[in-house]
């Protein structure tokens, strides 16, 4: 699991005020792989995900120790622009959160801000929607409000919006927990496709989903990384008893 690391986390501790939410985490995420983060509620999965694109900066009183290298560069170094990091490391949230704008502008908004010129926008919007497998469903209603789309469509729109920023990494926090099985299957299918070009890190409470779509799985428990291994290994013969108890649904 050493080769091809796009992100390396080295001895990271993370605090909300005085409360430590992550303890001495060291791990690497491999390029063009899907990595699943699993573990009981409150174990720190979302916290870790937000650390990777400096979203925790937006929360008052937080503190990071250790380093997180993205392609060799410490993203918490003083000279690093968090906005640039967030462009390269995009995020999709649990609840679809489209802007109250047209479908077109949901996608075009970010690229416009980063200076993509108007002539290239149409192509970028189309390409992003196609990548997110939403194009056929929305191509004739681009000027309608995104708020009228179904939950599954909104989530794919949010993925398209993230992709339009041309990120290297896509972080997804329970992206299908609010979706029906068909929409979920579409997003999972999409993740399979996307990993050719992107590195994907996904938080999920759905064990079968983690088993289906990820290459590697990390199990967290109360802020600690308990086991990190190939997904197949984690779901057939985990090395740590705690992992086994969790994924087989045994209580402590």
């Amino acid at each position: 699991m050493e080769s091809n690391a796009i992100i390396s986390i080295n001895r990271v501790n993370f605090y909300y005020g005085a409360v430590r939410a992550l303890t001495d985490i060291s791990m690497k995420f491999r390029k063009n792989k899907v990595t699943a983060l699993i573990g009981p509620s409150g174990c720190g999965k979302s916290t870790l995900l937000r650390l990777l694109n400096r979203m925790n900066d937006l929360i008052d009183g937080t503190r990071v120790e250790g380093e997180i290298l993205f392609e060799g560069q410490n993203i918490y170094a003083p000279d690093v622009d968090p906005v640039e990091i967030r462009r390269k490391i995009g995020m999709v949230f649990q609840k679809p959160n489209p802007f109250p704008k047209t479908i077109y502008n949901n996608i075009a908004y970010g690229p416009k801000l980063t200076g993509v010129n108007a002539g290239d926008l149409d192509a970028l919007v189309e390409q992003s929607l196609k990548q997110a497998v939403l194009w056929d469903e929305v191509k004739d209603i681009m000027s309608k409000s995104a708020m009228n789309l179904s939950g599954g469509q909104q989530q794919r729109l949010c993925i398209a919006r993230a992709l339009a920023m041309k990120p290297d990494i896509l972080l997804m926090d329970e992206p299908t927990s609010a979706l029906d099985p068909i929409s979920t299957a579409k997003i999972e299918e999409l993740i399979e496709e996307l990993k050719k070009d992107y590195t994907i890190i996904i938080v999920t409470h759905n064990m079968q989903q983690a088993a289906r779509i990820s290459d590697e799985t990390a199990f967290f428990y109360i802020g600690n990384l308990i086991e990190y291994n190939k997904t197949e290994k984690i779901f057939t013969k985990p090395e740590v008893k705690q992992t086994e108890d969790y994924i087989t649904g045994r209580f402590g």
Binding site: I234, T236, P238, T243, E244, I247, T248
Partner: peptide, 9 residues
């Protein structure tokens, strides 16, 4: 039940 790990084995 879609068993995993020890349950699957």
């Amino acid at each position: 039940r879609q068993p995993t790990a020890i349950d699957l084995r």
